[in-house]
């Protein structure tokens, strides 16, 4: 029954998001009211096993996962195409089926290529 109650679906989603934020916000509020507040310099230092921490954690970082993130983007976009296809591939023309198989094959080859190139090693 597509279309029927479509607006109500997404109104419910919006209301649920708001309620989720509100419920946890209420917990934060209760914490702010109930908890003691005795700030000190030592409490405000980042954790370092009890000794004075060195420079901030925001120094330059070697984000080793960025190639993984790019690969993930490719697959995530693919998922957007795959979901509708998985619903209709039995009802449409057969070339739709073969075309998507070809697409999956190309992507799979892409993973194998990345593997061969050593991108998938965590160094």
């Amino acid at each position: 029954m597509p279309g029927d109650g479509f607006a109500l679906d997404w109104v419910t989603v919006a209301v649920t998001i708001v309620v989720g934020f509100a419920a946890m916000g209420a917990a934060f509020l209760a914490n702010a009211v109930l908890a003691p507040r005795r700030p000190s310099v030592d409490k405000a230092t980042p954790y370092e096993s009890g000794i004075r921490p060195g420079p901030l954690g925001w120094s330059q970082f070697n984000a080793r996962y960025y190639l993984f993130a790019i690969l993930f983007l490719i697959f995530d976009v693919e998922a957007v195409f795959l979901f509708p296809w998985a619903l209709v591939f039995l009802q449409t023309a057969s070339y739709v089926f073969y075309a998507m198989l070809l697409f999956i094959g190309i992507l799979f080859f892409g993973v194998l290529y990345a593997w061969r190139k050593g991108v998938l090693e965590w160094r």
């Binding site: 980042p46 954790y47 370092e48 921490p53 060195g54 901030l56 954690g57 925001w58 970082f61 984000a63 080793r64 996962y65 993984f68 993130a69």
Partner: peptide, 15 residues
Amino acid sequence: AASKYSVLGGFRAAA
């Protein structure tokens, strides 16, 4: 959080 451990953990989590 500006803590070394949490930054490291956050990046690990993303990966």
